[in-house]
């Protein structure tokens, strides 16, 4: 008999409260919203619901504004996660060595990571202000630009400007996870590779990166999940504009639920987002699993 293990009864008893709460506050809404996604829900003094099959889904998939929101979200996720991975890995390699400076830098990097996206968004919006904003001032002062750029007000530059803020906030997460991963790597493969005459980039390419694979996948999963649900920065910095060029899928869903009060359509939109996120995560998780076999 294993003394150190709780019996099944006690085990279930300890899970039960959490399970009840999750079923009630997550499970029920999830099912509820699935049902709502097949209904037309209109607010005419009271809420009137009518079953309309997959009409909400068909409308959404045929609607250019929703297609645009999905495209913006896809671009946002791929560019953000891609840049964060490359930049984060490079910085992690550079700050990995234990010196007083690198420890100080790592502490500094935590600040943008934990601050509210609302605060980060406001801060950058201030810096992006045309004419008096510090970025325009710097670019004009050094003669790179002759006239101010309206970073957040023009279709071509709004999304890249948002992405810079996203990268500013999230790269530190990638860095600290990579630093932890790097310090947990065994020394022997490096010694062996050094004996074989490998050096510099070759060590990174053929020793470090393969050993970090599981961690790379974990970071990609967590970051893609978060980037795909981008909302806060969009809300604070651009409200989806100009001309819907920064309208992400979550922002679109929020608008259709809480500004247009079309709860049926927004539930369908939310389900499409969920489906994409789950498929993405399951694909990545199963690649970790097969990695570990």
């Amino acid at each position: 008999m294993k003394l150190s293990r709780p019996t099944a009864a006690i085990g279930f008893l300890m899970i039960a409260p959490a399970a009840v709460v999750m079923l009630g506050t997550l499970g029920y809404p999830i099912v509820n919203s699935f049902i709502m996604s097949f209904q037309q829900i209109s607010q005419a003094g009271y809420w009137k619901t009518q079953f309309i099959g997959v009409t909400n889904y068909l409308h959404l998939l045929g609607e250019p504004r929703f297609q645009n929101a999905l495209r913006v979200t896809a671009i946002y996720t791929v560019v953000a996660v891609g840049c964060e991975m490359v930049l984060g890995f490079a910085v992690a390699l550079a700050v990995f060595a234990e010196t007083r400076w690198s420890r100080l830098m790592r502490s500094l990097y935590i600040v943008p990571m934990v601050m509210a996206p609302v605060a980060a968004g406001l801060l950058w919006r201030y810096m992006y202000q045309p004419t008096f904003g510090v970025i325009d001032q710097a670019l004009m002062g050094t003669g790179i630009l002759s006239k101010p750029v309206i970073f957040l007000g023009v279709v071509g530059s709004a999304l890249p400007s948002l992405l810079v803020v996203e990268i500013w906030q999230a790269t530190p997460f990638v860095i600290i996870v990579f630093v932890a991963g790097l310090s947990a790597l065994p020394q022997e493969p490096y010694d062996a590779a050094l004996v074989d005459g490998a050096s510099g980039w070759k060590l990174i390419r053929y020793v470090t990166l393969p050993m970090l694979r599981p961690i790379i996948l974990i970071i990609v999963i967590i970051r893609s999940m978060d980037a795909f649900r981008a909302f806060d920065l969009v809300y604070v910095m651009t409200r989806g504009g100009p001309a819907s060029s920064t309208e992400t899928a979550t922002y679109y869903t929020w608008i259709s639920a809480f500004r247009e009060f079309d709860l049926g359509k927004s539930s369908a939109a939310a389900y499409i987002i969920t489906l994409v996120v789950l498929l993405m995560s399951i694909a990545l998780i199963s690649s970790i699993r097969s990695e570990q076999q």
Binding site: R229, W254, A257, L278
Partner: peptide
């Protein structure tokens, strides 16, 4: 610690709940 029947399945389910974007829960919860 407990070796429960179906505990790894339950854990996977919890992980799936973590992945569901909040917007899905927010609309019906509202």
């Amino acid at each position: 610690r407990a070796r429960l029947k179906g505990s790894s399945l339950m854990l996977l389910f919890v992980l799936l709940l973590r992945m569901v974007p909040p917007i899905v829960i927010v609309v019906p919860l509202y």
